[in-house]
Design a protein around this nucleic acid. Structure first.
Lengths: 216, 216
DNA sequence: CCGGATCCGCACCGATACTG
DNA sequence: CAGTATCGGTGCGGATCCGG
């Protein structure tokens, strides 16, 4: 049964928290920022949420107009996607993520979803505006993304690119390491957690775009 | 005993929620946005939080570097104030409040703190830039605030103004009504929930600054 | 296997009472 | 005034089960 408790406060902040303040709610919204996802994908992206709670949150967020449940276009199943109202949470979540970057890492093994890294990449990458556009085919957790470094920023889209300068297949954690550690590329190729094809130097440009002088 | 559970997720959003995602935490931060407050003031501003939970949250937020506990300058007691890190949550809370404005009002009687209305006023008021500055002495819940309509925005400060065009004494809910309802002024004066002295027309300018053509 | 639903134990929460 | 102590209820976490 979905939760229904309120702060009983007229303030807009409290009313917002009445809707998206319950545990896991904002992380579900985060997962839907880049593309609609199905139940099992959300479970995989948020491995520490129990299925009943995820089910409750989805129902609650749907009831409050933040997400909607739609049949997937080509297949038989259904997916969850943000409504226009839910999409308005995007700048808030980005700001919250920037604030949380300075918070200590949780102890022990921590999850990292594909959406999380890609949102970080999208927000942090500042490729030199004069650099030629570079297109990446990125396969993370079995899903394909298109990343384009172009005109001073990183564009991230779900699905296959028309053409790609380089193709990567790995997990989100390894990909995250690629973005910050110049030695991670060869290490990850060696132990098989990363498969690369195409222009290897494009990976370095990705890292430089995130950590480089254009970052700030 | 303070809560200590984590999303165990490396994403910045999740780490931010590990710090300020527990129930009531962000509302405590909201209360401290305009001025430091003491324990009893926080209890009065958040009447639905139990004292033990408030105590836990304050300890937790202090431990995580969001607030700090300092001795009040002139008196014997102590107050809670935001740290520099805590203050960085201000734009996030304002954005969240804007988002929550479109959420339904909670059913039944709802609280409204002085800080909440003043934050709303500060964010929504767009007085005409050419209008002469107006200073208000505002007494809400026994605490005095200075509000100045000047150069296209509303400045809100704790404490007594040097001089004031008008003085108001009322509760936050009534003051909120003054900001949106042109008939509320005479009604509130009639039933004694509002005491006014000085330039009455200045109250109208306050409401016009919030709802007027300069609002958007 | 996917998309949940059911069950259970516990930590968190909410309300009240109590204390220095 | 500024919390602490206590206690019942419930949201949450973890596991298992079930229909398609």
């Amino acid at each position: 049964m979905p939760t229904s408790r309120s702060y009983r406060d007229s303030c807009g902040i409290a009313r917002a928290l009445d809707v998206v303040g319950e545990r896991w709610a904002l992380l579900v919204v985060r997962e839907l920022l880049l593309t609609p996802q199905r139940f099992s994908e959300l479970r995989h992206a948020l491995p520490h949420v129990s299925s009943n709670l995820l089910s409750d949150r989805l129902r609650e967020l749907e009831h409050n107009g933040v997400i909607r449940r739609v049949p997937a276009p080509t297949e038989g199943h259904q997916v969850y996607e943000l409504t226009e109202r839910g999409r308005k949470l995007e700048p808030i979540l980005r700001a919250l993520g920037d604030w949380g970057i300075d918070a200590p890492q949780p102890p022990g093994p921590a999850a990292l979803s594909a959406t999380s890294v890609l949102i970080f990449l999208q927000g942090a990458a500042r490729p030199g505006p004069e650099a030629p556009p570079t297109t990446y085919r990125l396969e993370l957790d079995g899903r394909v993304w298109t990343v384009i470094l172009r005109s001073g920023r990183a564009e991230v889209q779900p699905g296959e690119p028309a053409t790609a300068d380089v193709s990567l297949r790995t997990d989100p954690l390894t990909f995250s390491a690629l973005l910050t550690d110049s030695a991670a590329l060869t290490a990850a190729r060696a132990d098989g957690t990363l498969a690369v094809a195409g222009d290897l130097s494009a990976v370095d440009r990705l890292r430089e775009a995130v950590s480089g002088p254009f970052s700030y």
